[in-house]
Design a protein around this nucleic acid. Structure first.
Lengths: 408, 408
DNA sequence: GGAATATTGTTCGCAACTCAAACAATACCG
DNA sequence: CGGTATTGTTTGAGTTGCGAACAATATTCC
């Protein structure tokens, strides 16, 4: 039940039907490869004749290729179709508070090379240094590959359309335009996105195995900050100014602890790694406390350290972890009441303690969700090992190839 | 950049292009009537030949009709096209705490008859009574009209797919299925929806004049409760359990005042009419206060009374109104950070005091929105005179005719 | 008053698409 | 080696958008 936007619509031309069906075929091949033409025809409810033509066009566009012939119980053996990914490369960059991660991967998000180095905060030097590293990375990969672009994610607000970084407090970047500079220095297309939203894109476009297929979910990453991305009907919620989905800064208590964003009582101020550690050490996080927690900044004690202490029997550490779990649950419940997604993906260091906190999280959720069904919304913990941010950066470049054509 | 759902997609058939273009034409006629075929062709970037055929089909389907010939500076005069609405009727019902509103209107939401009566809480009696009233209403309208269905809205959570009312605390209804009963009693199609979400539908589908055209917005109705509806890409956000968009129950303070939903500190508990009046009288709304505010329930003093006292110079009344304005702004800011809509529609009694509270609302918004641009999100106050809830009920029936065909 | 011009709405040949059915290619099996 | 099942291609028919020509109708200019 979508209303047609009479100010921005897309009439169907004589090639529209084929565009649509070609894209559906492409996506089916992507998710079910290796797959034969006949199989494709069955899944699409089309005749093999039409599918043959679609496949021919996709091959001509170099988006797929024929592979080995498969086995059949009887009859002619099928020729398998595969997505062409291995020689289409993407550079993914994740700029974080202390370190920057640089990955080279193919169109399916498969990692080919990865490196990490201390974040360069000065913009001109950052661009110069990054461009040099990318050149070296691509050179080392050798010929026979095409690099389709650079995806870059930062912890902050980004106007994805213009590529402008509006505000990244952790890096001290405000209103900087890295995109044109980096594009000029490398000659490649550059897309920039907020790291939480990018992770959601990774989950949507590059998920593997059983994680595939959700089209309405909220991705929540609990780390230095709390990053979130909302996916509705298979589309990332971006909003008017391309800043939608900042669930980290919804209030749990208007007079609560001070938050990085300048406000107080944000969900992030209750559940970020800093908040959890601070709770353990009894640092002053209150609204009227000191502006910067110098204790915390100087400390090298991480949430992971704290979790292992909790597992070791440290009651204070356990209490701090459980309190974070409780606030996590209260926040998740609010998100469920607002978006009512099919599922919630949870990432971040705290999820390594999931077996410790799950019950507490669920209890807190039950407390504030408005219906019984909503309480049972699945929560899927995702591994941080797979670099969701970097895969999200890659998705920025890879996704447009597979996206549904705009119609009506 | 929508991902194609490989588990639920729609391949294009040979009639798909035409379906799409016919629907676009229908919507353009709806929003620009009276309009000629030639004008339509220009707007759609199609040839007049194709448009002629599309129009012919729409006339054959009895969705539009030809009208008078218009004036042209020179050349052949155009024949105007109109949407056929006047003889397609909808029954709209709004069930509220004390009174039920019943309206008969046409497909454009134009009011033909309206009546109101004390709400019958007993389900069997409610259905019997309502069915009789509807029969009478349709009989009085006379022949030559077709009633396309009944739209019913309630203050509570509704599973719109099954038509089940999950929980309407104001009416004391839990898990009741009115739809099949009412459909059986009247022989008409029945759709049920939450009143806040329905109002958003009315804004999307039945707006007139300059209010037309927004496709990404949040509708907020401040009344006995706080109802909201979120529209993204011209589609109402419904969610897994069809309960999305309950912004009224996001917390401003986990330990704040008691809310009707059983939790405490919900936005509604700060901004509903009851909250505003209670603030004036100094009633105990705290988390640990009495379960039911019997003072309030017995009182006939309304927010409107209070606003007129504030205008009359009552400082205490003014203070209470402004405090509500402040909490309104804080909640709206949160909504903007989450959804980042193109605009926000605000309805309810408190908006009659908009000129008193606007500055306060804007200040509070600026306090918590995360970017400068977000602070400037337009807020449009909508008139309660036009029965947004009833129009929303009508939209439930009328919208499917005009909705975009599902494709890809 | 009549030719030139402008605009609306229809018609027609053409290219592109889906669709059903026939067809060729290829395998297995008794 | 013939029967059968399956894959992939081809072919003709029906539907669509597209461009251009066409008829109908009005105004303007000479």
């Amino acid at each position: 039940m979508r209303k047609i936007n009479t100010r921005d619509f897309h009439v169907a031309t004589r090639t529209t039907s084929r565009d649509i069906n070609r894209h559906i075929a492409l996506n089916l091949i992507r998710e079910h490869q290796p797959i034969s033409r006949a199989d494709l025809a069955r899944r699409m409810n089309l005749t093999r004749g039409v599918v043959s033509v679609l496949v021919h066009e996709l091959i001509a566009q170099d988006l797929i290729h024929e592979g080995a012939t498969g086995e059949a119980a009887r009859g002619r053996k099928p020729t398998f179709l595969h997505i062409r990914t291995h020689d289409r490369l993407v550079v993914a960059v994740d700029v974080r508070f202390t370190r920057t991660y640089l990955m080279l991967c193919d169109f399916s998000g498969r990692q080919l090379a990865i490196e990490t180095y201390a974040t360069v905060v000065s913009i001109p030097e950052f661009v110069k240094d990054l461009a040099a590293r990318i050149r070296k990375l691509l050179k080392r990969q050798g010929p026979g590959f095409t690099c389709e672009g650079i995806g870059l994610v930062v912890p902050g607000m980004v106007d994805q359309r213009t590529g402008k970084i509006l505000n990244a407090p952790a890096l001290g970047w405000r209103d900087v335009d890295i995109r044109t500079k980096l594009a000029a220095a490398t000659g490649l297309a550059v897309h920039i996105e907020n790291s939480g939203r990018a992770s959601a894109l990774a989950q949507l476009w590059l998920a593997r195995g059983e994680a595939i297929g959700e089209h309405n979910f909220v991705y929540i990453s609990i780390s230095d900050g709390v990053g979130t991305g909302v996916v509705v009907n298979g589309e990332l919620l971006r909003g008017r100014d391309h800043i939608a989905g900042e669930f980290g800064h919804m209030p749990l208590n208007l007079d609560g602890p001070r938050c990085m964003c300048g406000n107080s009582g944000c969900w992030e101020a209750y559940t970020s790694n800093l908040a959890t550690v601070s709770r353990y050490f009894g640092w002053n996080l209150s609204k009227d406390g000191p502006k910067r927690l110098e204790d915390a900044e100087r400390s090298s004690f991480t949430v992971l350290d704290m979790i292992s202490r909790a597992r070791g029997g440290d009651a204070k550490a356990m209490a701090a972890v459980l309190t974070t779990g409780r606030f996590l649950g209260l926040g998740i419940a609010t998100i469920i009441n607002l978006v009512n997604p099919d599922c919630i993906y949870l990432a971040g260091e705290i999820t390594t303690a999931w077996n410790l906190i799950e019950d507490t999280v669920r209890e807190a959720m039950a407390e504030r969700t408005l219906t019984e069904a909503a309480t049972r919304t699945p929560i899927r913990v995702t591994s941080t090992q797979e670099y969701p941010r970097l895969r999200g950066a890659a998705a920025l470049i890879a996704a447009p190839t597979f996206a549904a054509p705009r119609v009506a």
